[in-house]
């Protein structure tokens, strides 16, 4: 698929308006790659001037910092900020709440000042502005969809409404889980838990969260974070409900409805 790369655009004499920060999950994880592709399809369709960093992008350092490895975080932050500032990047959109949080909240005091928006906010804006036109009889019309709040989007950055209004734009019926918004339960991946086994316990966090999904009666659980997506997909599979309940990113919901 056609994806503009920042350095190549510069060589062609173009300075794109927005950087799409893909993130490591969006780049390497097979499931998250389809989220990335769905979002790119939307960007291409709307005709937004954007580019990705391609091979020059590096981990923001979020998992290293949360594991306690501040040295590694600072190394990654330094290199990324040098690159972003060198390209004079002003605005960044990302589909990963962890990258979003780090770029938006943690890079400024290290010298990286950008306007950072999460893809859920951007999708909401594009819908509101009429730039994304959804099919009259979309695949999700009337479907029961529940939204799982990512900790780093919700509690960390108070973004609760944008992803929900995207779902509502699909004419779907949005149902809430018993723990939602500021009381939302974590999927279990944050704080670098994604990269290690859980500590000893009586259950797994994604299984606990999946029970909320099942109780909601929704046939689609929407997420706005590649890590939540992985955790919930695993949880649904463990319950052998993968035929009845789909785990989809809000970008995928939109991409399938235009």
């Amino acid at each position: 698929m056609k994806v503009p790369i920042w350095s190549e655009e510069l060589n062609k004499g173009n300075q794109p308006d927005i950087l799409f920060w893909v993130g490591c999950a969006g780049s390497f994880d097979a499931r998250a790659q389809s989220i990335t592709k769905a979002f790119v399809a939307i960007l291409n369709k709307v005709g937004i001037s954007y580019a990705i960093l391609g091979a020059e992008e590096m981990c923001t350092g979020d998992p290293a910092r949360r594991a306690g490895n501040e040295f590694q975080f600072q190394m990654m932050a330094y290199q990324n900020i040098q690159l972003l500032n060198g390209y004079q990047i002003k605005k960044i959109v990302t589909a990963c709440p962890h990258c979003f949080n780090t770029l938006k909240n943690e890079y400024p005091e290290l010298g990286g000042h950008y306007e950072v928006i999460h893809h859920s906010t951007m999708l909401q804006q594009l819908i509101d502005e009429g730039k994304i036109v959804l099919n009259e009889n979309g695949a999700f019309k009337g479907k029961k969809i529940t939204f799982h709040d990512s900790c780093y989007l919700g509690r960390s950055n108070q973004i609760y409404d944008a992803p929900r209004s995207v779902i509502e734009a699909l004419d779907a019926s949005l149902v809430e889980m018993k723990r939602c918004k500021s009381n939302g339960l974590c999927c279990g991946a944050g704080g670098a838990q994604m990269f290690k086994e859980e500590e000893k316990g009586t259950s797994r966090i994604n299984i606990e969260r999946t029970s909320d999904v099942l109780a909601s009666g929704a046939s689609v659980v929407a997420s706005a974070c590649p890590f939540c997506n992985t955790m919930l997909t695993d949880g649904i599979k463990l319950n052998e409900k993968q035929e009845e309940i789909k785990v989809l990113d809000i970008a995928e919901l939109i991409a399938q409805s235009i």
Partner: peptide, 27 residues
Amino acid sequence: EWTSMFGNIENNFAPWKFSPDQRINWT
């Protein structure tokens, strides 16, 4: 597992064992 993750970030700039060139394979 975290030690491996740190190693991956240090060497490949990603928490998983993929080389930077593979970052754009999805495109």
